[in-house]
Design a protein around this nucleic acid. Structure first.
Lengths: 233, 233
DNA sequence: CGTATGGTTGACGATAATCAAACGTCGTGG
DNA sequence: CCACGACGTTTGATTATCGTCAACCATACG
């Protein structure tokens, strides 16, 4: 009944909520151990790599990918500047996913066991909260994958991206997609052709304007209304 | 290419992996603050409830549920004895989901800020690992929801449940489902009719035997082989 | 005994997957 | 500079899977 219960202050719509994790990645760690540049297409880490620290995106954008039992690849998320990467590595102290830069990017390495356990620092205190958010987000993505149609999924994706860009000071109405249709499809559980068709459909209906990777959100209200459907129960 | 990279030692198949979290919930906390009994159908906590501690199942079984933007409910997981509940509440110090007992159950309350921050105790040191696992599990569920068909989803579900029961000393080949077809469907992103049909189909093929909620896994190898499909790429 | 809840099965239709072709863009090398 | 090839995108035609609607059964419970 109470749909609001699940939405945080910046998240009134029905999509996986991912606001800026760390306002300024540099501030988060007491000691920024190091930085690293990653070129477009390169992997920041891979499945099985030891995970002794984790990473915050300073600039650029990443996708995280896991490999299914049949060898098929699946995109589990997209990370913008300020987002934290590699939290799933906490389970085994080995990364469970692969992170690939979608453009030339820079990351900050945040040591997990930094200054010892006595003072976990800002970061240590933040950690449960960060992971909690990640968990909530994945849960919402589960909901999306389990119960939404193609249009709702794509609308959700665009609104989510829009909000995250807005938080970072970019235009929420007009932006450039850094990922391919195949990446979006993998993330949303759709084939790339379906993603393309759904883009076209939303454009015909006047809700957005698309030209390959350039997107304009024309009717945000209508996009939000796509989640008001009558409950099937 | 390397599908093994994602599977832990007790998890060779392609399903969301959820082994026993805490061998003995009583041991985990330095001080078990309290216990609580919950009757079948009752909620242990609800969305928005303050989340100051979290909970481990001592006996029985739970389902966790979130509510979508359209008011539609979605099952996010099932928790057996030893599993931890309420980790998604760490994000906001308020629960993001609702936990409902599928049978008369008992839980242990584990204080988050127990004996102060100086010594977080076993539990404190375990926490990142626990949440990490949860994250990995949700990620695998995402993969399932995004890329598997009905038969694979149900097979995955049954194999997962089987392994978790085995770890707890029950028969991995024959068990009783505590949740309804609707619950399974919600969890797997299928309609309850499809769940029912898929059960029947697996039975016709000789892979399982089902009678309402009683399940026998007849051909585990064949169930596992369902994930060897040729990658579509 | 009757009602309610949950499960099975059938018929049908809709949505998205698949297969296929054509087009645009970008980067490289002739 | 232009030509070529690789890659990504769009669109069409067709198919398959799953969702929807509906009827019917089984079991549990008051």
């Amino acid at each position: 009944m109470n749909a609001q219960a699940l939405t945080c202050s910046t998240c009134q719509d029905g999509d996986p909520c991912a606001p800026c994790e760390l306002a300024n990645p540099d501030d988060a760690a007491d000691t920024v151990s190091s930085r690293r540049r990653v070129r477009r297409g390169e992997a920041l880490f891979r499945e099985g790599d030891p995970c002794l620290d984790f990473l915050a995106v300073r600039s650029g954008m990443f996708k995280t990918v896991i490999t299914g039992p049949d060898g098929h690849e699946h995109v589990t998320g997209f990370q913008l500047a300020g987002d934290v990467l590699g939290l799933d590595g906490l389970a085994q102290e080995r990364h469970a996913s692969r992170a690939i830069a979608l453009e030339d990017s820079e990351v900050v390495v945040l040591p997990l066991h930094g200054a010892g356990r006595r003072d976990p620092g800002q970061l240590g205190r933040l950690l449960p909260r960060l992971i909690g958010r990640e968990l909530v987000r994945k849960q919402k993505l589960n909901l999306l994958l389990a119960s939404m149609n193609a249009q709702q999924r794509l609308a959700s994706f665009l609104l989510n991206l829009s909000r995250r860009l807005q938080v970072r000071g970019y235009s929420p109405a007009e932006f450039h997609l850094r990922m391919s249709r195949a990446d979006i499809g993998s993330y949303l559980g759709l084939q790339l052709e379906t993603v393309s068709r759904t883009f076209s459909s939303l454009q015909r209906r006047g809700l957005i304007a698309v030209q390959t990777r350039h997107v304009v959100l024309r009717d945000r209200a209508a996009l939000l209304r796509m989640f008001d459907e009558i409950p099937s129960g």
